[in-house]
């Protein structure tokens, strides 16, 4: 326990460093996106002002020929900035995950974060991960550092992206029966797909607090066994 604890700690420290770098990058990215947004916004304002002036001049001054075109373009830029911003923000959240001293993870928010990040990568394979809205009860907390939980989720998602295509994967977070878990429910039509090869580190995972993935036929279940004695530190 001591050795792996030290190891985990070391890993966390490196991940934290990595996170610090990523955070600094995304921070810069946000700034640049803000510049773009402001520039586009200003263009929109100018366009609007020029339109107003043209109206005021009652036709003496000719309206800008590409007014509508520009409006569309500026709106599109706004949308794309929004999209980039979302990604950057997700990345920023990811970057800050290793900072978190928490020993527990909110499974639903971790799952949400992951799919906001890899959604497009999945879409490239025409896979849609649909996170089922919770049944209303409080979100299951698992006794596992957020980074580890996230990496485990990522591991399963990647394995699915690897073999599936053109389908929808329902993702359900639950705490039924025994342990908190995340189910990746395979589509019925996906039966013909090649078998999902899960990362060995997740399949062979043993011991308290280590996420463990198993194939249950129609779904892949990532279980988070509660650990009675959480490794100190972190």
């Amino acid at each position: 326990m001591g050795v792996s604890g030290e190891n985990t700690k070391q890993g966390m420290r490196d991940a934290a460093f990595m996170g610090a770098v990523t955070a600094s990058i995304t921070h810069e990215m946000q700034n640049v996106l803000a510049i773009i947004q402001q520039s586009a916004g200003l263009m929109g304002d100018l366009l609007h002002a020029s339109r107003m002036e043209s109206l005021k001049s009652l036709g003496f001054r000719k309206g800008f020929q590409y007014h509508d075109k520009f409006s569309t373009l500026i709106a599109a830029i706004g949308e794309q900035v929004e999209r980039g911003s979302n990604l950057s923000e997700g990345l920023n959240r990811l970057a800050h995950v290793p900072d978190s001293p928490a020993e527990t993870t909110d499974l639903r928010s971790a799952t949400g974060l992951l799919f906001s990040l890899i959604g497009r990568i999945a879409r490239k394979k025409r896979i849609a991960f649909v996170l089922e809205s919770g049944t209303g009860d409080r979100a299951p907390q698992v006794q596992c550092p957020p980074m580890q939980a996230l990496m485990a989720l990522y591991g399963v998602a990647q394995a699915l992206i690897e073999v599936l295509s053109g389908c929808t994967v329902q993702v359900a977070v639950g705490a039924a029966e025994d342990d908190p878990h995340v189910d990746f429910i395979l589509p019925e039509g996906g039966a013909g797909s090649p078998p999902v090869i899960l990362p060995a580190s997740l399949v062979d995972a043993q011991g308290a607090g280590t996420p463990c993935a198993t194939s249950l036929g129609d779904r892949i279940r990532l279980r988070f066994p509660p650990c009675p004695a959480v490794a100190a530190g972190g």
Binding site: M18, V81, L91, L94, I118, M151
Partner: peptide, 23 residues
């Protein structure tokens, strides 16, 4: 393990290139 975190971050970082290309 570290590289797997890095891969995720890098993969996502490059997704930003798409909206940027559009802009």
């Amino acid at each position: 393990k570290l590289s797997s975190i890095g891969r995720l971050a890098a993969g996502v970082a490059h997704e930003i290139n798409n909206p940027l290309a559009a802009i």
